[in-house]
Design a binder for these strands. Structure first.
Lengths: 323, 323
DNA sequence: ATACTTTTTGCAACCGGTTGCCGAACCCGA
DNA sequence: TCGGGTTCGGCAACCGGTTGCAAAAAGTAT
């Protein structure tokens, strides 16, 4: 059916090994021979079979990218950047979605193991123990999750949260609420710890919540009940849902309550009010994570933690506290 | 390093072929032997190497899913449904993003060819000619695109567009605008044709536009200039951007202009005004497309067109024309 | 007990590449 | 012209499974 390396060998009158080398070790074959072989290959429409190559080299030239939820707009920029970076290195990325389910996540990793050289785990919901165990089977890079001794790319949400709290207190807010995310989320924990460590403010934590608009919508009642006038939401989706939920209860943003989100997704830049938010360098994270992963794929055991900066972007969803 | 079929064979005192058959052809091996082999395999932590299997069987048990833009919220439900359906059939899905670039799309298909058994092409921007050529290399199923003789899953946007136009004329609008999408888009063409075929309305077409909020934002000026009071946007993202762009020009929705989107994405259900939209059965499309693809993978040459219904959901972005 | 099925297992070739090893051809200087 | 060093290309084993074929084992009928 398909044209193989042997067809090319026959057609160009050389041995298969020469054809193979023409592709994967050019310096070992006479330039003239190589040109001829490549021409014939081109002519026959030959394309190397990556699966076969993987068998001997042990390299599939594929990477796995596992995210909790593709539908969350936080991920696509990261995914795109990772894909682009991988292509640069002649790798392909297989994206998979776990639906926020740790069990599905583990299964996925297991099945992916033989088909990829490494896995990018974005915002995993697994336990540390499980991650450490899985690590034996295949190289990992974690994004948005800290596990001792594993290569990791983090975004400094702690600092972001501090900036957010300072911004709110600067506007005169004295009672704040943090609408937290899913329980397994490192980001959520970071936010909480940073907020809790701030002095001279009264902070209440509401959660856990699903990291979606619906989560924010549902949290609106608690926010109202809490009496907080400044809110830091787990992410922009939650913030958007929250604004909506508050509006349904006659609470207007930013007039009555100020809301800050996280991620700086496009939707937040367009609705009304435009969201004040903590911008995350997701594209950079994707690129860097891929490079770290490739490094640890062939360097046996690379490790290291990269921390990326976050920034506070002030828009319309925060305002002075009413006195 | 990893445990192979031969390790299992040695450890359980049978030939490799027996081990192989214990997994892939159970009825050909004595139940007792099989139980023993499986136990040993389990014990050793053996997992079959899919790449190796692919080499002999010619089946990778992987599917490719190519979308124009993962960041477009239209796709995730489709992707998730496709993934879930594929898992049910013991297949994996590799998602890839083309960034709306036909060239990248073609490259991607080429490289994917050897690693997957079939490809799901969602809203492809390629020319018909290219698609037909690529078809020789690997089984396809198209979503949201019609090419003669190819298995296809469509959503009836034509009907949706007619419903939308009727809704608008019913509200008294006499001059309508259609904000179209990218030039290669089948959906866009369908919408235009359906709208153009409606009598007794004055329709102007504005485009092509990128299928994003920014596209809608940019189209606002043209809409204002066109004098239309009813607008059908290429999708909800465009609609949301458009609403925002109109607001910037002091044009309020639905007071001054009515806007209808397409897709029924979550963001449209939450902003203000909540979008009137044409809902697309994306999850169903994903499921069906996977099944059609798997069918045409082993049935050599299956074909057929599935058309799914769309519905008009009336919310707040449409209202009576001012007289 | 014999001949004939049917089930179970082993053998070995094969899928499509890669790679260590070895010999042939070539180059250079003396 | 000969020895020594390179460069180039062929040979064959191998990666980890699958599968057609046939031998061995077990079962059945006569």
């Amino acid at each position: 059916m398909a044209v193989t390396i042997r067809d090319v060998a026959r057609a160009s009158g050389v041995h298969v090994s020469t054809v193979s080398r023409s592709f994967s070790a050019p310096h070992l074959v006479n330039p003239e021979t190589r040109t001829r072989v490549l021409a014939v290959a081109e002519d026959l429409g030959y394309r190397p079979n990556r699966a076969a190559r993987a068998l001997t080299t042990g390299r599939t030239h594929n990477l796995g990218l596992i995210v909790a939820d593709i539908a969350n707009p936080f991920f696509p920029p990261l995914i795109k950047a990772a894909q682009a970076q991988a292509r640069l290195r002649d790798y392909h990325v297989f994206v998979a979605d776990t639906d926020e389910d740790p069990k599905a996540e583990e299964d996925l990793i297991q099945t992916l193991t033989k088909q990829v050289d490494g896995v990018l785990l974005c915002s995993p919901r697994l336990t540390n123990r499980t991650i450490e165990r899985l690590r034996e089977e295949i190289p990992f890079v974690l994004v948005n999750r800290r596990v001792k001794g594993m290569p990791t790319v983090l975004m400094d949400v702690g600092r972001g949260a501090r900036l957010a709290v300072e911004h709110l207190t600067g506007l005169g807010h004295r009672r704040l609420a943090v609408v937290t995310g899913p329980s397994g989320s490192w980001t959520s924990k970071e936010m909480q710890e940073a907020a809790a460590a701030m002095n001279e403010v009264d902070v209440v934590f509401l959660g856990p919540n699903p990291p979606t608009e619906l989560g924010g919508l549902a949290a609106a009642a608690d926010v109202v009940a809490s009496g907080a006038t400044g809110v830091l939401a787990y992410n922009d989706l939650v913030a958007i849902g929250l604004v909506e939920g508050l509006a349904e209860r006659g609470v207007e943003v930013p007039r009555d309550v100020s809301v800050i989100g996280v991620d700086d997704i496009v939707a937040g830049r367009l609705g009304r009010p435009k969201l004040t938010t903590i911008a995350m360098p997701t594209a950079a994270a994707g690129r860097i994570a891929v490079d770290m992963l490739l490094q640890s794929v062939d360097a046996e055991a690379a490790t290291g933690v990269t921390m990326l900066e976050t920034t506070l972007i002030v828009r319309e969803s925060t305002g002075e506290a009413r006195t």
